[in-house]
Design a protein around this nucleic acid. Structure first.
Lengths: 194, 194
DNA sequence: AACAATACGGAGCGCTGTTCCGGTTCGCAA
DNA sequence: TTGCGAACCGGAACAGCGCTCCGTATTGTT
């Protein structure tokens, strides 16, 4: 396995300048995203990276691809936290709550990211699909465990739960709106009346 | 009170053609909104109304103004339903749930409206403010009554509740996502553990 | 050193929202 | 009825955006 990231599907190695620019773009995008949110103009990102428009689109054909690349590590970490929490928590319900909390953490720290993964039909399909592919199985596992333990009602699908939580995180920049508290109430509403 | 709608702040009557165009715009906007959502291009609305760009902006300086004008009646009806429900329902909690249900009804029937009133900082301040001014007091009254009756915990502000419900209604076009069910769970989470 | 293959840059297109102003229409008053 | 200024109209024009396209430059290889 020689330099995996420098190879493409063809197996041919990437050119050195291409690798340089990809890294520059990733760094620039990360910086611009925190400064102006994930809707920042493509031109700004290109400028910040010191490259042309063509370059950014060659490396990341859609904005979703770029966002995914920038946040991939954090998403992976969140996905991997699921099984760990399930094993280490005192109850399936606590595991679910803990994982959701972590998911909320991720969303609220990214300006407008939550808003962009809402419906998956404004051209951000890729983003939406990526999050779902990676995180939905994890969420489903936690949810099913909680249902099996009789801790929560089987009212919601995992997809609805994730989308609901994601939606509740929209607009969390406003100090008068505590997304985490809303999510807490939603989770509470899931509990089996005991 | 002579022809209230034909007068402006100055007290001078509106010209007949101005009134005609305003009505044409309202009808056109309503039609275009149901066909293509509240984000439909301004040009489409102007064309549908058989009017120029200038006209639409003179009558409705921001898109929020137009949306408000189109849906004003329905918002008023929703606002007025609050006290009625409170008086006629079996319990304050039932009244709150009933009113929220009505609010959800309103939101889910308008393509993307919910998404546009989210944070009140993407240039749709006017929309956001109007909804809040009109509906928030109603929601607050219902919520307070339910809290006073000991039916729900005083965890959330009325603003958070409204925003939360609004957010949950985003993306309700997807058949796999039942916004009403999510809202139901949220309301359930509000209940005082009994 | 010469040559493909690959990548680069940014001008340019199409689509938005928004402004601006010359020409037109309307309603009132004489 | 007619005249006139205020009010209104239409759409050309501008600005900002995403995205594409292609001539030019760079790279790794022979």
């Amino acid at each position: 396995m020689v330099d995996e990231h420098a190879r493409r599907a063809t197996g041919r190695p990437k050119r050195a300048d291409a690798r340089r620019n990809e890294k520059a773009l990733l760094d620039a995008a990360a910086a611009v995203f925190v400064a102006g949110g994930v809707d920042a103009p493509v031109r700004d990102i290109a400028a910040q990276a010191g490259v042309g428009m063509g370059t950014i689109y060659r490396h990341f054909p859609t904005r979703a691809d770029l966002i995914i690349a920038v946040y991939r590590h954090q998403v992976e970490a969140c996905a991997e936290a699921g099984p760990v929490l399930l094993a280490s928590s005192s109850s399936p319900h606590a595991a679910l709550a803990g994982w959701i909390d972590r998911f909320v953490d991720f969303l609220v720290t990214k300006h407008g990211l939550a808003g962009r993964m809402q419906s998956g039909q404004d051209g951000f399909d890729g983003l939406h699909d990526y999050f779902l592919d990676r995180l939905l199985p994890v969420c489903a596992e936690l949810l099913e465990a909680a249902v099996a333990a009789g801790a929560v009602k089987a009212e919601l699908t995992a997809l609805e739960l994730m989308r609901g939580v994601g939606n509740l995180c929209i607009g969390a920049e406003d100090p008068r709106y505590d997304a985490r508290r809303l999510v807490g109430v939603l989770i509470a509403g899931l509990r089996e009346a005991s």
